[in-house]
């Protein structure tokens, strides 16, 4: 095989890997949207918040240390102990569930019958709130997150692919980050688990009923509010997973919350209500982005990753407003 073709394959594989990461975030959006009709703009910040909390718990940071120091003139930072990764993850999960519960109590309950666009703007508010809150609680410095997932290039894969190139060409093999592979595997497991949950469990069925029609679901005795807490908890869990993956990859910092912006075109492509749509949309965007950067980027000066996905999604929308897997909308009066 020629090196060009191998580069192409490498780009596609890397695109698929980052696509999986996008899907992971998009999944959180879809879950909440399906169950409550809310386009949760704060999903990315939830991932950041989860990652911050995880690091904080793991390294034994004192919450609100800066604030306490500012008020009382103390100099505290850490408790001086470290938690094992598993315990810290469990602790973070508890925090995320508590967050879902509080959010339902304080906010969602009061916004039940508002228009979707008002709810959307409320989640933008939530994103700001959570960002400020997370920074206040754990500090805004860049942190490294290590829960024991191996990372770095795979030498084995590099060696294998090197042999694929034609004799005598100076090809050094493909680079694939092991972390990406783990992320992909975890994402696949997560999707299967979530699908199984919503198809085969009682709660899952209630969830789908609520998604279809709030009032009808309530009339058969499903508690809307507990469903919402469950859904937001699950979304918090998905955010935690996404936070762990992205955080291990590029550190825990503000830019982590921007992955939400990456996931939005995925949603448009896949439709807001479709889990398979989120996965396939993510893969398409991931691969498209990497290929575009490789082939179109040099023609227009590069760095097109930021907007390329949006333009793809936009063009796509013009032809199919309901997304890849959405149903055609018949408007009635």
């Amino acid at each position: 095989m020629s090196p060009e073709f191998l580069y192409f394959i490498e780009t596609v594989i890397n695109g698929l890997m980052s696509g999986v990461m996008y899907s992971l975030v998009a999944l959180g959006f879809v879950l909440i949207f399906k169950a409550s009709g809310i386009f949760n703009f704060a999903q990315g910040v939830m991932a950041l918040f989860a990652a911050l909390t995880l690091v904080g718990l793991q390294t034994g940071q004192v919450p609100f240390a800066h604030l306490i120091n500012a008020i009382f003139g103390t100099e505290i930072h850490h408790f001086g102990w470290e938690l094992p990764a598993a315990v810290a993850i469990a602790g973070t999960l508890v925090v995320m569930v508590a967050f879902a519960w509080i959010f339902e109590k304080l906010v969602l309950k009061h916004l039940v019958n508002q228009e979707p666009i008002i709810l959307f703007m409320a989640t933008i508010g939530l994103a700001y709130f959570l960002e400020g809150f997370g920074d206040l609680m754990w500090g805004s410095d860049v942190k490294t997150l290590n829960v024991g997932i191996p990372s770095g290039g795979s030498f084995w894969w590099e060696d294998v692919t090197k042999t694929w190139a034609a004799e005598g060409s100076d090809y050094f093999g493909m680079y694939i980050d092991v972390l990406d592979v783990y992320a992909a595997v975890i994402a696949v497991i997560l999707v299967i688990a979530l699908t199984a949950f919503s198809q085969y469990t009682r709660t899952g069925r209630a969830l789908r009923a609520v998604a279809d029609d709030h009032q009808a679901a309530q009339s058969v005795g499903i508690s809307l509010r507990s469903i919402w807490v469950i859904v937001w908890s699950i979304a918090g869990f998905v955010a935690l997973v996404a936070g762990i993956m992205w955080g291990s990859k590029s550190g825990v910092q503000f830019s982590l919350s921007l992955i939400a912006l990456k996931a939005l075109p995925v949603l448009i492509l896949g439709g807001f209500t479709s889990i398979p749509g989120a996965i396939i949309g993510g893969l398409i965007i991931g691969v498209g982005e990497k290929l575009a950067e490789l082939y179109i980027g040099p023609l227009v000066g590069g760095a097109i990753e930021n907007w390329f996905a949006y333009v793809v999604a936009l063009v796509f929308l013009l032809f199919r407003p309901q997304g890849l897997f959405g149903e055609k909308i018949i408007e009635r009066v």
Binding site: V107, I118, M121, A122, G125, Y128, F129, G132, D135
Partner: peptide, 17 residues
């Protein structure tokens, strides 16, 4: 600054409610 972001976000939600 963190406080400011937090309060603005919280206010948005509060006002929408």
């Amino acid at each position: 600054e963190h406080f400011q972001i937090m309060i603005v976000g919280g206010l948005i939600i509060f006002l929408l409610i």
